[in-house]
Design a protein around this nucleic acid. Sequence first.
DNA 1: AAAGGTCCCAACCGCCTTTCC
DNA 2: CGGAAAGGCGGTTGGGACCTT
Length: 324
Amino acid sequence: MGRPPCCDKDGVKKGPWTPEEDLVLVSYIQDHGPGNWRSVPTRTGLKRCSKSCRLRWTNYLRPGIKRGNFTAQEEKLIVHLQALLGNRWAAIASYLPDRTDNDIKNYWNTHLRRKLQLQADGVSPSSSKPATAANKSSSSAAASTKGQWERRLQTDIGLARRALREALTAIRDGDEEEDDDIKPQAASGESPAASSSSGASMSISMSQPTPYVLTADNVARMLDGWSKSSKGRAAAADSPPSSGSSASELSCGGAAASECVRKPAVSAPAPEQPSELSAIETWLFADDVSNAVGFLGHGHGYGGGLLDGPNPGLLGGGLLDGRF
DNA sequence: AAAGGTCCCAACCGCCTTTCC
DNA sequence: CGGAAAGGCGGTTGGGACCTT
């Protein structure tokens, strides 16, 4: 029965990853694709726990990751989604496909929380946001009878819709004010939904699935980036305004297109985020609560329903689940 | 210039859910 | 079907970088 342990505690290396380890991991994933993390340490010879390998890949090595330089739109989206979802960073990250949950979490903890706190101090103490998430989870969990549950459900849906509608409105406004910030992103997403519906769709439109191939050139660039970053993460702070990241450098980055061999087999096509967004907007401006329940609960490819019992799984894993 | 404080983020830890045997 | 491991997620922290005095 059972499976062998994923990693025995003895002989497991901890701490920062070295460029050599990164190379081993990247080239292994290049050949085999991500997944089956349990076998990664044994098959690569890395003295790392499988979880560590997975985290390293998803948070740092995975192609297409944008790091640092959060735009105003992203900030707004994070703030509103945090108000809506609480500290469910994976779910929030599913709306910012270029960002990792860890990155968003860090950004929230180091920037946004304090910023909001200051704003809250300036305005009214217990006015807006975190209460929404808290109320949501506690109310859903606490509702014991069906009638109570249904009433709370409607309240929750109302709150959720309002918060998300505010988020989209804020982002639209932001787009008009700060168009420059989102242009690079918008330029890459040419899907009809992105262009037709709103700035919100624009700002969170799916990035192109970024192929990555371990060419000598890419490796050289990787190592270059590592050597810089190992001297200090100032590189991250100083990273190009286009949020040129180590990850994007890892992918085809600025390399000549001819050097970027496409190997789509490695990364599965990303889910169609814009259509999800359209669904959200449809839902936002619909009146039928049962539709909202359907949207929140099932049938949209999300891992679970917002209102599926005491441990709601709104967007759980969400779009990121299929990103490889 | 140096010491101390603060900030930031990569990575670890532990819990929960899902999957497998 | 139940138990155990894998996978996933959020919270936390260690240590390097940066800032202030």
